[in-house]
């Protein structure tokens, strides 16, 4: 356990949505993952089958618990654009958590013009179920975890940047330079890599290393507007740390939309608009 993780745990409220999550549980899941990964069957799943299986869901399936799943959780993120004031605190929280340089933004906040004027639009990796980046990677360096999160193995990535070309959301970041991070913060895994390795691609992982410990992602923790929610398709629940809702109900009642879903990417990030944003931009 590195210093970073201890740090984060200290200043974080445990996620109310999975209170039964114990440390032992986490370890056993890791072992499970490791075994799967070693067989290689895991990669096959990540590449095709898993995408198809997961894609079968719609809001009714989630509400009725009919989701076909490959893991205990299927993480999603929800942005309430009515609350976002473009303060960029989420970016700072993310950069601090992952020890990124100031230029590298895994979550970006765009200021766009909608029907009623300017509004802020945070964009991070959509964890697409049909992810163009995963499809184009020539060496399987980027892949789906069984919980739906797309990660990059920086020990495998050849740095061809085909995934950056394929991503319609412009959320992938290339590490042109080696970052200087004190030894005590180093952490080596596709789920939580510190520091980022020169010559490879980085991206948002929804802080899956925190989620799997029952903690909130760094951007959510940093958001003083409480505009960021994390949710689980399996449990059909979402929370921003203070408010908790039934995910499928909330998405339906608030006319949630997914960004550029017309591209067939099946994003796992939802937006709730409120400033008259064009729903299709």
């Amino acid at each position: 356990m590195t210093g970073v993780e201890r740090d984060v745990r200290r200043r974080t409220t445990p996620l109310p949505l999975i209170p039964s999550e114990s440390k032992d549980h986490v370890v056993s899941r890791r072992q499970f993952l490791g075994t799967l990964g070693a067989t290689g069957a895991y990669f096959a799943l990540g590449g095709g089958v898993l995408q198809r299986v997961l894609a079968a869901h719609d809001l009714d399936d989630i509400a009725a618990g009919r989701l076909k799943i490959a893991a205990d959780h299927q993480w999603v993120m929800i942005f309430d654009l009515r609350r976002c004031d473009a303060c960029r605190d989420c970016i700072k929280g993310c950069q601090e958590q992952h020890h990124l340089s100031a230029d590298d933004e895994w979550i970006k906040v765009y200021e766009l013009i909608g029907v009623q004027g300017k509004f802020a639009m945070p964009v991070l990796c959509m964890q697409c179920e049909s992810a163009p980046c995963v499809r184009v990677c020539p060496v399987r360096a980027t892949y789906h975890l069984p919980n739906g999160i797309v990660v990059v193995d920086q020990n495998v990535c050849i740095g061809c940047r085909m995934c950056m070309a394929a991503c319609p959301y412009d959320v992938r970041v290339f590490n042109w330079e080696q970052q200087d991070v004190p030894e005590q913060y180093h952490h080596e895994s596709p789920e939580f890599q510190v520091p980022q390795k020169r010559g490879t691609v980085s991206k948002c992982t929804l802080c899956v290393h925190l989620l799997e410990q029952g903690l909130f992602p760094a951007c959510l923790q940093a958001c003083t507007m409480e505009a960021i929610f994390v949710g689980d398709l399996v449990e059909d629940v979402m929370s921003n740390g203070r408010e908790t809702y039934i995910l499928s109900q909330y998405l339906r009642q608030n006319d949630a939309f997914r960004f550029r879903s017309e591209l067939g990417t099946r994003p796992r990030v939802y937006y709730v608009s409120g400033h008259g944003q064009d729903l299709d931009f």
Binding site: V139, R140, V156, C157, I158, C160, R161
Partner: peptide, 18 residues
């Protein structure tokens, strides 16, 4: 490429969709 010394993976970790 960022890691030209890894291109052998194109053969060993071939991802035919790419």
């Amino acid at each position: 490429d960022g890691h030209p010394e890894r291109v052998w993976r194109l053969v060993t970790a071939m991802q035919i969709n790419s």
